[in-house]
Design a protein around this nucleic acid. Structure first.
Lengths: 247, 247
DNA sequence: CCCTCCCGGTTGTTATGACAGGTCATGGCG
DNA sequence: CGCCATGACCTGTCATAACAACCGGGAGGG
């Protein structure tokens, strides 16, 4: 068995279902499987990948949750229409959103420091004038290319707990699960600006290129603002997508 | 077995994992389990519900996808956060949104014409290759300053009815009230680009200024795409704002 | 010709069993 | 006293097996 997917080739910590899921997703996205085309049956995949049915189903289940495939009992599993956007009524961080769409996201921490909160931060986080805040600067990578500079500001009682932690992952799950802060919603504001020095340096941009700037103020469930961020995306390599409904 | 959950009590077509999932969800929402409280372990639940572990895990998997619980290997499964508050963002046109905020908005129609739909429009509106569409080009003004160029594409059956109408107002209410088309939702995509000739001309921009570009595909309530638009906003005079919630 | 029944194929559900890997408390050793 | 090894407990992953529910087409009967 395990002819298609190598079982645990020494240093292959990735679970089998993850390998299969990612491969199927790649093949769906690159057109190997057309929209509404039937995927091989679970039984066939068992043979192809040399794994048991439960493993195949686990991979398909994830793809189903992502909205990439749908199943019909007695008929098979099919590629669904290529919806560009799905999870958008939901507040998600960059990494969460990208992971949900099958991209490989990572972050590099540039700095974390305590400073006197700038005016905009004071207003956003509802601080006292002159109060300190914690600033976290990160660069976001997508498929190993820098796409976003992220400047986050936290109130002291939350931000001080971040020193010494690994901030290269997603912050939202960390706030929720590690800090026990239930997140509520976020106010988002988007505009377009020209690349400044910082953007040119970290995003490898030339002078005069366009930047998609996002201001995001995230609240906890009680409505207290807890995270104010500036996100500067390369205009040529990122789109902010979402879906809204009428009434 | 099956002491807690009755197996298939005559007319109980609900799968066991659905019954367990729904019961756990109810208990989470009504406070039987507090936020961040540990749920019984999978092993314990096997005994309580009298089912196998795979069934328990299937129930927990669904709750996990709903964002109600999260797991930590070696520790247990925990309640993540209370119920979902769906604050749906309302789909509004430019004029509607501006009027709601007390601004004075107007529009000038540059052109309306029938043409062979460009590729992106064909894909968005789900047309046949080579099919015609109606294009409406407008400039949007806020307090008498131009802030947005709006290129809208409609399928023929809808667009042809627009000739001769006054298009200087809002299109969405027109579609709903005059045409009797109930609107559903819209997929929105934002990025940043540099001003092109058209933008420079109509928005009074210089070369090399940043543009906030919005692609908006609006559907009717049945899900049929009926309006595909490119909106190009001056980066320095307009912000796109909205609010989203975390599940 | 048409309708029905059946059968092979497919997904849906569930049981049992096993091992890997993480967490945590306890207790023994230095 | 402090450190760490150990084991109990937990979730994560995967295999094998079975039956149910459903779909589609073909065989057979009217």
């Amino acid at each position: 068995m395990n002819q298609g997917i190598h079982p645990m080739a020494e240093h292959s910590p990735l679970p089998l279902y993850v390998q299969i899921r990612d491969r199927l997703r790649r093949e769906i996205l690159d057109g190997t499987y057309q929209v509404h085309e039937r995927l091989p049956s679970e039984n066939e995949m068992m043979g192809v990948f040399g794994v048991s049915r439960i493993t195949i189903r686990q991979a398909l289940r994830d793809l189903h949750n992502e909205g990439l495939v749908f199943s019909a009992q007695g008929k098979g599993t099919f590629v669904s229409k290529p919806k560009a956007v799905q999870n958008v009524q939901r507040l998600e961080g960059f990494g969460e959103a990208m992971a949900a769409q099958g991209y490989e996201a990572s972050a590099r921490v540039l700095s974390i420091q305590q400073l006197k909160a700038p005016k905009a931060v004071v207003a956003a986080l509802d601080l006292q004038p002159g109060e300190d805040a914690i600033e976290v600067k990160r660069v976001r990578y997508l498929n190993r290319s820098p796409v976003c500079i992220e400047n986050s500001y936290f109130p002291m009682d939350i931000g001080r707990r971040m020193f010494g932690l690994d901030l290269s992952g997603d912050i939202f799950p960390m706030l929720e699960n590690l800090f026990g802060i239930p997140l509520g919603g976020a106010d988002i504001s988007l505009d377009a600006i020209l690349a400044d020095d910082e953007a040119q340096q970290y995003l490898n941009l030339k002078t005069g290129e366009a930047i998609l700037r996002v201001e995001r103020l995230t609240h906890n469930r009680d409505g207290r603002p807890i995270d104010f961020e500036y996100l500067c995306y390369r205009g040529d390599s990122f789109k902010y997508q979402f879906r809204i409904d009428r009434k």
